[in-house]
Design a protein around this nucleic acid. Sequence first.
DNA 1: TAATATTGATAGTATTACTATTGTTTATGT
DNA 2: ACATAAACAATAGTAATACTATCAATATTA
Lengths: 224, 224
Amino acid sequence: MELSLRITLNEKLYLKNPEESILGRKIVTDGLKLINTLGFEDFTFKKLAQAIETTEATIYRYFENKHRLLVYLVNWYWTYLEYKVMIQLTNITDAKEKIKRIISALVIPASNDFSNQYIGEKEVFDLVMYEGSKSYLTRSVANNNKDQLFKPYKDLCARISLVITEVNPKYKYPHSLASTLVEMSHAQKFFRLNLPSLTDFAKDKNDKSIVAFLEHMVLETLKK
Amino acid sequence: MELSLRITLNEKLYLKNPEESILGRKIVTDGLKLINTLGFEDFTFKKLAQAIETTEATIYRYFENKHRLLVYLVNWYWTYLEYKVMIQLTNITDAKEKIKRIISALVIPASNDFSNQYIGEKEVFDLVMYEGSKSYLTRSVANNNKDQLFKPYKDLCARISLVITEVNPKYKYPHSLASTLVEMSHAQKFFRLNLPSLTDFAKDKNDKSIVAFLEHMVLETLKK
DNA sequence: TAATATTGATAGTATTACTATTGTTTATGT
DNA sequence: ACATAAACAATAGTAATACTATCAATATTA
């Protein structure tokens, strides 16, 4: 059986749905790779056009500007992650076990479960780690928020906060703890790789210690 | 008595020390304000030059580019904050009390204790909240790190992690918890103002609930 | 087969992110 | 008080960025 999950994103993100053409998917796939290679600041539609042998103007027919492409990719990731978390939690009854599974899903980019996707999980994880917060750290947050551009991120946090409440119904800050968890699952990894003295993890080691750190923090915070 | 603290920053941050001339200080002061007004992406040296009635070329004599100016301002803030924290902790012996004071210092932009500075604390707090992570989320992190451009941030985290260890000497992740605390003191405030559903704080309310959230999280995490 | 949508090719504009040069003002040292 | 160096203003110029517009060629679909 071929598992193919279709992720449908907010229409305001694009001018023309990139999923509906080969070229559109190429813009997304190769755009992701090129942003990861150059960094978002140095990435331009012109460079992408050259890389995929099309023209700048053509890319502009799909996305208003590069920031929209970034938000598109980041949203793809959050939507994907919410789905992944949902699957990871099916048939699990113990709330603490749920938390542990959420943290693993957040920190460890998957075993390419859905690798038939045209967007690679490891790549989009890296993108979110390096560029994710640039999607909302702008003067247009308010407007973008009105257009629901952050809905996937909020939905994920809302889902996590429900599990938090399940662990401890009296805990007063489930949403903040959820957003802290999500943010830190990326920031701590970025720090481990680039500014290791901000962490207690060796640069060369794997992500297990990050998982341990976050699990401990969240579960201790939720103790009754 | 006039209290004037002199913050000396890494020489690699500038081409010409802006503290040493009226114009230099104006570049820093008004640059800070203009970045806050326009957002870092839309801020340019040309616009700043017009605002302070000088020329682009003159500003380039002080700072290599706008990113360096950003890092300069962010470093100023971390250095200032470490100093502020240091003062807040003098004569305090109880480690938990120290943590509480650190959190207050992080979350609540000061009562303008040192308002004779040419850099305003509230403004530089806003800058760090909105643009701070852009100082390290670049492809040049590694190089910038080699040039010690993140030392003030690391020093602050190191100092906080010492207090964390004081609270619980057996706790295994003092640095990660410190960087989590610092990051979240800004992120949660940004969320409260711009994406409130990621928090449990009302948009209009003050910062007390953020302090309470962070205090609870850190102190519970450190319980023996 | 006609109509329509998609892409390619080309061109053009305003702005950005700089660098270079030259001349004028301002500060400093003797 | 005067020379000399440093700081700054004024101007000009360049390559790249972030777009927009037009028109023709090619698919797609009705």
